[in-house]
Simulated assay, not measured.
Amino acid sequence: MKNRELPWLPRLVIYPKDVAKITGKSERKARRDLATIRDAKGRRKNDPVTIFEFLEYFPMYTLETVLVMLN
């Protein structure tokens, strides 16, 4: 994807509070989901997860939906 094709992103990193808000799960479950994504990607414990990696793991959400929920 070219840069001009991406909508404006407020940030690239997604946090447990964001995941909880988007999915409707508890913040603890959101932390576990992010840990699972890191594990699947071969990342270390404290490495950030991007919005795009979150969308790969949760294909039921679209980028537009996530951006609306984050604003």
Rank of each mutant, 00 (worst) to 15 (best):
K2Y: 08
K2Q: 11
K2S: 13
N3R: 14
N3K: 13
N3L: 13
N3I: 12
R4Y: 15
L6Q: 11
P7F: 04
P7S: 06
P7L: 05
L9E: 05
L9V: 13
L9A: 07
L9F: 13
P10A: 12
P10M: 09
P10N: 08
P10F: 07
P10C: 08
R11E: 13
R11P: 07
R11S: 15
R11H: 15
R11G: 14
L12A: 14
L12Q: 14
L12C: 12
L12Y: 09
V13Y: 06
I14H: 00
I14Q: 00
I14L: 02
K17H: 14
K17C: 10
K17A: 15
D18R: 04
V19G: 00
V19E: 01
I22Y: 05
I22D: 02
G24T: 06
G24C: 08
G24Y: 08
G24Q: 07
K25V: 10
K25Y: 08
S26V: 09
E27W: 04
E27S: 10
R28C: 05
K29S: 11
K29N: 10
R31Y: 03
R31E: 09
R32K: 09
R32C: 01
R32Q: 10
D33L: 04
L34F: 02
L34W: 01
A35T: 03
T36Y: 01
I37E: 00
I37L: 00
R38L: 03
R38F: 03
R38I: 02
D39C: 11
D39I: 05
A40M: 10
G42W: 04
R43F: 14
R43M: 15
R44A: 15
K45F: 13
K45T: 15
K45C: 05
K45D: 07
N46K: 14
D47Q: 05
P48A: 14
P48T: 11
P48E: 08
V49Q: 00
V49P: 00
T50P: 03
I51K: 00
F52W: 12
F52P: 02
F54Q: 01
F54E: 01
F54P: 00
L55W: 10
L55C: 13
E56Y: 07
E56P: 10
Y57L: 02
Y57S: 11
Y57V: 05
Y57D: 10
F58L: 08
F58I: 06
P59I: 09
P59N: 09
P59Y: 07
M60W: 07
Y61V: 05
T62F: 06
L63T: 06
L63M: 10
L63I: 14
E64F: 03
T65S: 06
V66A: 01
V66Q: 01
L67G: 02
L67W: 02
V68A: 03
M69T: 14
M69D: 04
M69Y: 07
L70C: 09
L70F: 09
N71T: 12
N71Y: 06
N71K: 12
N71I: 09
N71E: 10
N71V: 11
N71Q: 11
